[in-house]
């Protein structure tokens, strides 16, 4: 695919994969953010006056796909989103985020109603300088961590990006409007799906490789049709996520907001199923700590919770049963 940018999203895939591999050897979250920033990946979506590339969202998809496949232990999604969101209104801050000087995350659960409160599901907050906190009126505020915003470790399913709780007593900092937050959430649905796509595809590749090597009863596992069909179903799941992401970002998509929401809801179920099936195909080995499939599964389930997949499904139901779909359809037609 060629674009007006003389680049295609696929051009970033190899670089992203190499940097994510390098990150696996880095010691700290700060080191990993530095590697990602040096390669320009944290600023892909940030404005070009903010140390970024000002590229459309589809350019971030292969980068986050690589991050999901490579189990990247860094808040890359949150960094990309905030560098983009603050571009144009707070350029110095957007620049600091894009070049990795200010390490940021987002507390995906909970809202502040006033200047104090508790929020959680903030990946890697313990290693970050600031956290974006949503407010009940739809806007958000970037709170500096430390005095007035204490990070508390939580039990966490995700091993790569452990979540934390943040107790805020005095919320002060740069703000995002409700409109910007709505857009941020919509883009997050698509980019989370890209992370899930990477995790799912890596799970599938590992399962295919194992099934072609492992022999039982004198034959490779993949010689058995039951195993072939398991793998084929997971291939369909992976391609369904991939195609739905592409549709959500296509200029020809009729209802991109609905498409992004459905992409994310679908990706959470399909991605988890792919990791679960991979564990099943590995058999007893799949249940061991050292085989990393459980890491993908934990990651996908955590992303589902951060993106509120269950609540989004309820919103689809509400829209469907209220007749809003039919009304939207009539509006589209008129």
């Amino acid at each position: 695919m060629t674009t007006e940018y003389d680049l295609s999203p696929e051009d970033f895939a190899d670089t992203a994969k190499a940097v994510v591999n390098a990150c696996a050897e880095a010691g700290t979250t700060a080191d990993r953010i530095a590697l990602l920033a040096d390669a320009g990946l944290t600023g892909i979506l940030a404005g070009d006056s903010c140390g970024g590339m000002g590229l459309p969202v589809d350019f971030a998809v292969p980068v986050l796909h690589a991050a999901g496949a490579g189990m990247l232990a860094a808040p890359l999604l949150e960094t990309m989103l905030l560098a983009r969101a603050f571009s144009g209104t707070q350029d110095d801050l957007a620049t600091a985020i894009a070049i990795g000087h200010t390490k940021v995350t987002i507390a995906w659960n909970g809202e502040l109603d006033g200047a104090a409160g508790t929020v959680d599901r903030a990946p890697l907050a313990e290693d970050c300088d600031a956290v974006l906190v949503f407010r009940r009126d739809g806007s958000a505020i970037l709170v500096t961590l430390g005095a007035g915003a204490e990070v508390m470790a939580e039990d966490t399913l995700d091993l790569e990006r452990p979540e934390a709780r943040v107790v805020i007593t005095a919320a002060e900092g740069p703000e995002l409007s409700a409109e910007t937050v709505t857009e941020l959430q919509r883009i997050a649905q698509i980019l989370r799906s890209a992370l899930i796509l990477g995790a799912a595809e890596d799970s599938l590749e590992r399962a295919c490789e194992y099934a072609q090597d492992r022999r039982q009863f004198g034959k490779t596992l993949v010689s058995y049709q039951a195993i072939q069909h398991h793998l084929a179903r997971q291939c369909l799941a992976v391609e369904t996520i991939r195609n739905s992401i592409a549709r959500s970002l296509s200029p020809h998509c009729e209802m991109p907001v609905d498409a992004a929401r459905a992409t994310f809801i679908g990706a959470t179920g399909l991605g988890a199923k792919t990791a679960e099936t991979a564990i099943q195909i590995f058999g007893g080995m799949g249940y061991t700590w050292d085989v990393p499939l459980h890491r993908h599964l934990r990651f996908v389930r955590t992303l589902a919770a951060q993106g509120k997949a269950a609540e989004l499904l309820d919103s689809v139901a509400q829209q469907l049963l209220s007749g809003d779909n039919i009304k939207k359809e009539l509006q589209r037609a008129s």
């Binding site: 369904t240 195609n243 739905s244 549709r247 998509c253 459905a262 499904l313 689809v316 469907l320």
Partner: peptide, 19 residues
């Protein structure tokens, strides 16, 4: 919820067709 899951599947199917 089951009906919402159908609606989501329809969107995913559109993804296959349109892509």
């Amino acid at each position: 919820r089951p009906l919402a899951e159908v609606a989501v599947n329809i969107e995913l199917l559109k993804g296959h067709v349109e892509t």
